[in-house]
């Protein structure tokens, strides 16, 4: 299968590979996919107290399109609020990377990964606030 130039670029020069400490209160971690299905994505976001995603990292087990999809979304989420990041759609990812139909599931997984990371972060902050810290309203 021939890959689109954007997929090749992200595969060869992946952005933001790495990991944050998942126990850090400001870090949300999403782990999606399954080894038996041939792709697993771990996407992490570092969120400022103002609710802005300051940084993102990923690690992915999967084909070139899976690696490219996760690399791309780490770029896209940076600087966005959680609500904005929540609106990233797999179709945008697939379109940007020109994924063929057989690779659409890679973009779906990347969308799932962001959502999982945001959910993880929100759950963490919720449990912090119920501990009596400052009551922060999470939209």
């Amino acid at each position: 299968m021939a890959y689109g130039s954007k997929v090749v670029d992200h595969y060869e020069n992946p952005r933001n590979v790495g990991a944050f400490d998942k126990n850090d209160a400001g870090v949300g971690t999403g782990l999606v996919g399954a080894p038996a299905c041939g792709d697993v994505m771990k996407l992490q976001i570092k969120v400022s107290p103002e609710g802005i995603i300051e940084d993102a990292k990923f690690k992915t087990f999967g084909c070139g399109s899976a690696i490219a999809s996760s690399s791309l979304v780490t770029e896209w989420v940076k600087g966005k609020s959680l609500d904005e990041a929540q609106t990233i759609r797999n179709t945008d990812i697939a379109e940007h990377l020109a994924l063929p139909p057989v690779k659409i599931h890679c973009s779906v997984l990347a969308e799932d990964a962001i959502k999982a990371a945001i959910t993880d972060y929100r759950q963490k902050t919720k449990s912090v606030s119920s501990d009596g810290a400052e009551a922060e309203k999470v939209a």
Partner: peptide, 8 residues
């Protein structure tokens, strides 16, 4: 492997 969550 350096970018594989499973390897990590």
């Amino acid at each position: 492997r350096a970018m594989s969550p499973l390897w990590e």
